[in-house]
Simulated scan of single mutants.
Amino acid sequence: MDTRQLKQEIIEYSKEIGIDKIGFASADVFGELKERLKRQQSLKYQSGFEKGSNEERTEPERLLPGAQSILSIAIAYPSRMKDAPISTKEDRRGIFARASWGIDYHVVLRDRLEKLSAFINEKLPDSVNKVMVDTGELSDRAVAERAGIGFSGKNTSIITPEFGSFVYLGELITNIPFIPDDPVEDSCGDCRKCLDACPTGALVQGGQLNAQRCIAFLTQTKDFLPDEFRTKIGTRIYGCDTCQVVCPRNKKVDFHIHPEFEPENEIAKPKLKPMLRISNREFKDTFGHVSGSWRGKKPLQRNALIALGHYKDKTAVEEMIGVMNNDPRPVIRGTAAWALGKIGTEEAYEAIKTAMEKEQDEQVLYEMEKGLDFLKEPSAK
């Protein structure tokens, strides 16, 4: 079959199945990316969530022998929540990043890509394809940039001309030699709003991210959150959108094309206190279908405690004392003690002192000491 004709048919079919943008790239080695990965590793800037070796992440033929092309897809998601619930003094709320609104995008994009693969196999039975969404070895952004989906912005996001950076990315490696598309011209110019707005300075320079300082990464860790980031995380439960929200290319960008990605308001902006006592079954039933649940409930509960401390929510003190005294997980007990100290009531002060008498975990005791340091003069609070 004429690959030019097949390419056009794939583009048309992609629109039918809900793919907003598709681009075609060569399967050549990503040489520049390989060098960048080496630099990131030497600087210890990687998150640790990355999959595969540098070779697997930059040499498509290692993933699919005989690879000739890579198809990159983009699907837009909303940037604004309709009728967003209000956080009140009685019911404080946290927030999930926009990329975790609606159904887990891994599921949705994989479905689209599998359909695309089946379509290609139907047209060309000898074709061999491999589908990947985010958790694969290849860099979705590097592929999308090469395929002309958008340019890589200073905030390290792919910025499309049509949908800004509010897009999910996925790719399909194939042994079909398609004519590649042209890259999109970088349009960041002298703008540095994302770099200046990053709460933790994780954006070291345009296009370079220290993932170890990125709030989006930190909200997914399971250990105690380092002190310097606890006030920075604010009321975020999962992820961070700051570098995208401030981007001029995202001004007035808000696409509600796919019902699957519409936020369920009570999940995207959940009440914090109920998150402290949620069971494993309730967590799975409530949050299991969103991408922000992939690390389990522990990081989200830790973040909820930090958010309640940020709010200085006195209505949560009794419940947080219960968590500090009874939760079997040291990270949760310790974070509860720290947050109680931030809230700063007489009741919290006495509860921490009492809890210290029976606590045996050294890290938890250290967090309790921090809590007491906030409460040296509880009567003045």
Rank of each mutant, 00 (worst) to 15 (best):
I158Q: 01
L169V: 01
E171Y: 02
V107H: 08
E114G: 06
G102E: 08
V128G: 03
E137Q: 15
P85H: 01
V131P: 04
G150I: 04
R112P: 12
I159D: 03
F163A: 15
R146W: 03
I173M: 09
G148L: 10
G136V: 11
G102L: 11
I86H: 12
L116R: 12
R110T: 15
E137K: 06
V128M: 10
P125H: 15
M132G: 15
V133S: 01
S127H: 10
P177K: 12
T135Y: 06
D104F: 02
G153C: 00
F163I: 03
S139T: 03
Y105G: 05
I95C: 10
M132T: 11
R92G: 12
V167W: 13
I159Q: 00
L172H: 07
V131A: 01
S87E: 09
A147Y: 13
N129Y: 07
L169P: 01
D134S: 15
I159E: 01
N175L: 10
I95Q: 11
F119Y: 11
F166W: 14
S139V: 01
E145V: 08
F166M: 06
K115Y: 00
T135V: 15
P125N: 11
L116K: 11
S117L: 10
Y105V: 07
F166Y: 15
H106D: 04
T156C: 08
N175D: 14
P125D: 10
V107R: 13
T135Q: 06
V108N: 02
T156E: 02
V167N: 02
K115P: 06
T160G: 07
F166Q: 10
F166D: 00
L116D: 12
D140N: 02
I120L: 09
I120Y: 04
I149N: 06
S127K: 08
K123S: 11
F96C: 04
G136K: 02
R98S: 10
R146V: 02
T160H: 03
E145R: 14
L109I: 01
S157R: 05
L172R: 05
A144K: 00
A118G: 07
G164C: 02
D134K: 06
D126P: 04
R112E: 09
I176H: 05
I159G: 02
G150A: 00
F163N: 09
V108G: 00
V108P: 01
E122H: 15
I173H: 11
V143Q: 08
F119Q: 08
R110E: 15
E145K: 12
G94Y: 05
E137D: 14
N175S: 14
